[in-house]
């Protein structure tokens, strides 16, 4: 159990090296070994999306990955998105639309939104709702989250059409 594997990776633009047990989950590695506790664990079986991170720019569930699978990777967690004093636009949109209550699901949503804004057309609310349907929020009823994302899509498309 104690044989460890060496990994090197970049998290939020900072280099990291670590020796990890092969069985350690990526989510536990981030939270317990590196104290990056913004990544949350809600189910540990890939259903809730609270643990979503970006792995080489693509949203993945860190509860379904092992830490050793992060070797050589570029990882982004919610801590890399913005700071309390200088939030990312996705974060300020969530605040403007009151798209979070308890905030537990929020880091996962922010990561997912980053990904879908880059990759999907999100032409209407149905497409936004479908794109968000892999993340569960038990507090907001989604309405405000959809509105926040819609505003971000509008901004994105406006810039793209300029």
């Amino acid at each position: 159990m104690s044989s460890k594997t060496h990994i090197t990776l970049t998290i939020n633009d900072e280099p990291y090296r670590a020796d990890v047990e092969p069985r350690m989950l990526a989510a536990d590695f981030l939270r317990d070994e590196l104290a990056l506790t913004g990544t949350h664990i809600g189910c540990e079986h890939g259903v809730c999306g609270a643990c979503t991170i970006l792995l080489n720019g693509v949203s993945v569930r860190s509860c379904l990955l092992l830490a050793i699978q992060l070797d050589d990777a570029e990882v982004q967690t919610v801590e890399g998105l913005g700071s309390t004093r200088e939030m990312h636009r996705i974060q300020t949109a969530f605040r403007e639309y009151h798209a979070l209550q308890c905030g537990f699901c929020t880091p996962g949503f922010l990561m997912t939104v980053q990904d879908i804004l880059n990759t999907l057309p999100l032409r209407n609310d149905k497409e936004i709702r479908d794109a968000l349907s892999g993340n569960i929020c038990r507090c907001t009823g989604y309405d405000h989250i959809v509105k926040a994302v819609r505003s971000l899509v509008t901004e994105r498309d406006k810039i793209a059409n300029q």
Partner: peptide
């Protein structure tokens, strides 16, 4: 919100 949105909760 600022702490909850930035993973600092």
């Amino acid at each position: 919100d600022s702490r909850l949105l930035t993973g600092r909760g």
